[in-house]
Amino acid sequence: MIRTIAVNKKNELVKDLTIRDVLNGDFHWYWVDFNIPTDEEIEFLREPFHFHPLAIEDCIHNLQRPKLDYYEEYTFFVTQALNQKMITREEIDFFLSKNYIITFHHQFSPEIDDVWNKFTLSTSTEKWDPSHVLYLVLDKMVDNYFPLVYQIEDRLNEIDENSKRRTMEELLEDLFDTRHHLLSLRHTITPMRDLIYRVLNSQRMSSIQGKWEYYSDIHDHLLKLSEMIEANRELTTDIRDSYISLNSHQTNHVMKVLTVITTIFMPLTFIAGLYGMNFHYMPELTWKYGYFATLGVMVLVAIGMSIWFMKKGWFK
């Protein structure tokens, strides 16, 4: 679906125009949104817009890395939004010029839809222009990153506290899933941060002159998000190392107990094996009290070794 809106020379909104009407009309500027376009609608990027083939290719091939490309009459942006439910990346592309902004996305974009509705309901168009639309969409995209990061922080606190008394295997599985989500967020937020940094330091972005502070605010938010993600990744590493250390400690404790028990039974096994050889000439075998004496010696050896191990601190 393609939807259009334009601002004429009288600063009035004109809606529901065709592509031909938009290009042939006398407008101050216009916005064309390619919302989940069909193959036939994608062809409008080639004719009549005549965008560069490389930019069109980036639009068609989904989930490109966020980037900024300069062309003679416009600037092309590849950005990534995050699906709040699926925690997946969704690409949104922009063609920005002083006279127009073209948005292109293969999935429904709540950010673009919110800005579109806000624009169509606005009573004044004086502050609106293509760079302002770009700022509003990017700002909403970045703001929607925060709930996902906060959600991950809550999960990490739950894993750290283990209030539900889950097993260590369940906790580690949840922890590695959380690290995977953090990695996915970092793959989105870091390139977006670099993209906004390029915008702020570009000498060719004349279309956003006078709005540097707005884009700088977006960059500050992305810096904060990057720091939060790195801090959470370090926290997941600390939690993982703590659980692994705890597991190793428990394993060592079990092995120590088993070692003590095995050590105590070693001389008892030797005595039992010695008198279990059944040689004919063994005087102890014919002694009336030999059986009870052997058991007594074995008990004394076991008690003596246990007391000695306790003094050595092996049972702590």
Score class of each variant (00 low, 15 high):
V260M: 13
D129H: 03
E73C: 01
L23M: 13
L172M: 15
T236P: 01
V142W: 10
G313S: 11
L200A: 06
L82Y: 02
K140W: 05
V149P: 00
T262L: 06
P48T: 05
I189S: 03
I218W: 09
S122V: 03
S207N: 03
L223P: 00
V257Y: 06
D177F: 10
Q107F: 15
Y197E: 02
M305E: 10
D177Y: 12
D177S: 10
H249K: 13
N162H: 11
N8T: 02
K224M: 07
L45F: 10
V14H: 02
R89M: 08
A231N: 15
R240N: 13
P48F: 05
R20Q: 14
P66Q: 07
R3V: 14
P37Q: 08
V32K: 04
H249M: 07
I196G: 04
S124L: 06
L134S: 07
Q250K: 15
I196M: 08
P66F: 11
N252I: 05
F292R: 07
D139V: 08
P66W: 11
Q107W: 11
F315Q: 05
R166E: 15
Y289T: 04
F94C: 03
D217G: 07
I261K: 03
I87P: 00
A81C: 05
D69G: 01
T103N: 05
A302C: 07
F34A: 04
A272H: 07
I42S: 10
K9T: 05
V254F: 12
L175Y: 11
S97H: 09
I112R: 03
H28D: 06
L223S: 08
I271K: 06
I2F: 09
L136K: 11
R46W: 01
E73S: 15
I244T: 13
Y100Q: 08
A81T: 13
F34S: 03
Q64G: 06
F309L: 12
V14K: 00
G296E: 04
L235G: 00
T269Q: 08
D69I: 04
R198F: 01
A272Q: 08
V199E: 01
H180N: 10
I152E: 00
W29S: 04
L136R: 13
I208Y: 04
N99I: 02
C59S: 08
K311F: 13
R65I: 06
P283A: 10
R179L: 11
Y30H: 03
T251N: 13
I264S: 03
I218Y: 05
K127D: 06
F176K: 09
L274V: 12
F95S: 02
I159G: 00
I307A: 08
N247T: 14
F119H: 01
P110W: 06
N83P: 04
M228K: 09
Q203V: 04
T75L: 04
M86W: 04
I189K: 06
H253S: 12
S206W: 08
M298H: 07
V260C: 12
L171K: 14
